[in-house]
Amino acid sequence: MARSSYPAEVLTPEGQVYQGEVEMISTRTATGSLGVLANHAPLMAMLEPTELKLYKSGSENPGSAEVDRFAQGEGYLQVVDNSALLIVEDALRVDEIDRPALESRLEEARQGLENAEEGSEEQDRRRREIKRAEAFLAIGGEGS
């Protein structure tokens, strides 16, 4: 039996990238992967950079499911009244990922981390940047 669907919206600073019905949203929080089906309890979650998957149909069978994939940056997921709102910093289509740029950013962030003082805000920030770049690079690798 097909799973019931619910409305979802993905907002980024560059505008809305998705609006429509989904059966399941798959993303990632600080504690691990998260899948949200219809009629979920009200939820507010902080998201980590990962591959965001919006299952539009056939989600019970991952092999043949119709899925919209995005490289998703840090952000938030809010589920209320059986509708989901994703507020994320980036949501790129997999073919929009700029691998060389990411690699150079990763390198830069690693160097910055080495030079950063222990316990400073700078250190914290570089770590987040490394996490983002690594997550995006992992997605690009799978897709090709």
Binding site: T29, A30, T31, L34, A41, P42, L43, M44, A45, M46, Y76
Partner: peptide, 10 residues
């Protein structure tokens, strides 16, 4: 509401 993680952290 379910908060993931705690609202303070968010």
């Amino acid at each position: 509401w379910i908060y993931e993680p705690e609202p303070e952290e968010i």
